[in-house]
Design a protein around this nucleic acid. Structure first.
Ligand code: FES
Ligand code: FES
Lengths: 153, 153
DNA sequence: AACATACTTGACTATTTTAGTCAAGTATCG
DNA sequence: CGATACTTGACTAAAATAGTCAAGTATGTT
């Protein structure tokens, strides 16, 4: 799974934008200062969020970024896929030049575990919205039960 | 989360040992050949598994490694912690020289999400035994429901 | 005892990934 | 027109990963 500085920063940045949703756009320099992330890095990350359609940009003086949807309609999963590409990369076949050298191919007991983990993680991230993240009390970090029904056994 | 080549290899190696549980020990060279992992790397990984008490070594000719417990009593979580140290590293405070520069410290909506994810993943890995991994049919990769009861909301 | 087998230890290196930087743009507002 | 601020893509330093190497030590067999 890819949890890098981009993950951490992008999450903080978009939550920051969520706080001023409906109000004026925020410049990357302001974001850089308030979230303590290098300015050029902020640019890079917000550009990816923009390309994924999660935020809008407004050029020129007084411009900046703003959410393109309300915080309830943006999930953490979308944010992470936007900045990292894919959240959980396949484990089997990643090493040994891509060929699966497992002896029990087709009915292997290991690979389903990685696949299910991937599903578990994706579903978890998709169950969490920006609105959840903006709540300033701990404990509301996704309803795990609700999400479980959708994981294939 | 740390899912590296060590993770992948160590899992395959210990499953391999599981298959001959009760029979003779298997040399690292044999393991290297049958699992297609560099011999010196196999040595390194099995040594870590040994230090964690999951496998036993037998020196001298005819020696090798064998499980030190039955496959039902070894979990994937134990294996991963043995080879990687910690499975999921803290996200908050990992960047920005260790200080949490979140504006809503103490009641932040983001950090509980990483913490819960970590718990989710650890519980999942701990719910899977070597015996599960050895079953050569897909689909028996841990009972997610059972594991959920133990995750703090 | 000698010898081959096979684990043990720890340092070392090449490769890849991550984190962050830089420069040269383009569009918009006032 | 000029300042503000996004846009693009390449570039670099630092860290992590993947794998190697060499010099051991212990054990079973002959
Ligand atoms: S297919 Fe990857 S370990 Fe079996
Ligand atoms: S404490 Fe890390 S983002 Fe709030």
């Amino acid at each position: 799974m890819k949890i890098t500085s981009s993950t951490e920063y992008a999450t903080r940045l978009i939550v920051n934008l969520g706080r001023t949703f409906g109000a004026a756009a925020v410049s990357t320099e302001k974001l850089s200062e308030s979230e303590n992330v290098p300015a050029d890095y902020v640019n890079q990350l917000l550009l990816r969020l923009k390309r994924a359609g999660l935020v809008q940009s407004h050029r020129g003086s007084g411009g900046g970024y703003s959410l393109s949807r309300s915080p309830e309609k943006i999930t953490l999963g979308e944010v992470l896929r936007a900045v990292e590409g894919t959240i959980f990369e396949d484990v089997c076949g990643k090493y040994n030049d891509g060929r699966k050298d497992c002896h029990h191919q087709g009915h292997c007991g290991i690979s389903p575990v990685w696949q299910k983990l991937a599903a578990l993680i994706e579903q978890y991230f998709d169950s969490i919205t920006l609105a959840h993240l903006m709540e300033e009390k701990a404990g509301s970090c996704g309803k795990v039960e609700a999400m479980l029904g959708r994981i294939p056994q």
